[in-house]
C-alpha cells in the first residue's frame, strides 16, 4: 500500500526532471559575452554583428589553447573574425558561413563537435552513464526491498508480552522527549 502511495510523487518528480532538460544548456551559455573583438572589426549593421559574435563564440582559435576566436587576441583569430564577417556581409547564412570555415580548416575549428558517428561516444556517453546508473540503482533498490519483504515475512509477529514492553518503551520515549 505504501508503495502505491509513493508512486504518484515519483512520477511528478520524474516529469519535472524531464521537463527541465531542454532548458539546461542555455543556463550556463554565454551568449552575450565578448572578449577580444576589436572595435575596428565590428560590422556597422548591429544585427549582422550580433550574428557574427554568436557564431564566433563557437569557433576555435586554431593556434590557441581552448579559446574561441571571439576571446582570443591571436592574429589568426582576428583574421578568422574578419573572414567570418566578410562571409556574412556577402549574404551567407550562419550555416553556410560556418561550413565555409570548416571546409578550409576542418572540423577542428568547431568548439562544439557535430553529432555524427565518430562523436557518438562523446555525445551519448554521459547519458549512457546516467541510464546505467539509474538502472543499477533500480536493481539495487529492488533487491533491497525484496530482501526486506522476505525478512518481514519470516519474522514472527510480536507476542503479547513484547507488545506490552514496546508500549511501555514508547511511552517512556514520549515522556523523555516532552520533558526535555
Amino acid at each position: 500500500m505504501l508503495r502505491q502511495r509513493a508512486r504518484g510523487p515519483v512520477l511528478v518528480l520524474l516529469a519535472l526532471l524531464w521537463a527541465t532538460l531542454p532548458v539546461a544548456p542555455t543556463l550556463v551559455s554565454t551568449s552575450t559575452v565578448a572578449y577580444a573583438v576589436e572595435p575596428d572589426e565590428m560590422l556597422k549593421d548591429p544585427k549582422l554583428e550580433a550574428r557574427a559574435r554568436k557564431i564566433s563564440q563557437n569557433l576555435r582559435c586554431l593556434v590557441c589553447q581552448n579559446e574561441s576566436i571571439d576571446e582570443s587576441n591571436a592574429p589568426l583569430a582576428k583574421d578568422l573574425r574578419i573572414l567570418l564577417r566578410e562571409r556574412l556581409k556577402a549574404g551567407d547564412t550562419d550555416e553556410e558561413a560556418v561550413q565555409y570555415l570548416v571546409d578550409r580548416y576542418g572540423e577542428y575549428v568547431l568548439l562544439k563537435p557535430r553529432f555524427a558517428i565518430h562523436t557518438l561516444i562523446l555525445w551519448l556517453g554521459p547519458f549512457l552513464v546516467l541510464a546505467m546508473g539509474l538502472i543499477a540503482a533500480g536493481i539495487y533498490l529492488r533487491r533491497r526491498m525484496q530482501a526486506s519483504r522476505q525478512a518481514l515475512a519470516s519474522e514472527a509477529p510480536l507476542s503479547e508480552e513484547e507488545r506490552k514492553r514496546l508500549g511501555e518503551l514508547l511511552e517512556k520515549d514520549v515522556a523523555t522527549r516532552d520533558g526535555a
Binding site: L17, T20, A24, T26, V28, Q57, R60, L111, P113
Partner: peptide, 22 residues
C-alpha cells in the same frame, strides 16, 4: 584533430546538473 569546447560542456553538464539542483 577534434575540439571539444565550452558549448559541449554547457550542454551536457548543464543538462545533468539541473535535476540535481531540483
Amino acid at each position: 584533430k577534434i575540439t571539444v569546447g565550452a558549448p559541449y560542456f554547457n550542454l551536457t553538464f548543464g543538462t545533468l546538473i539541473i535535476p540535481l539542483l531540483v
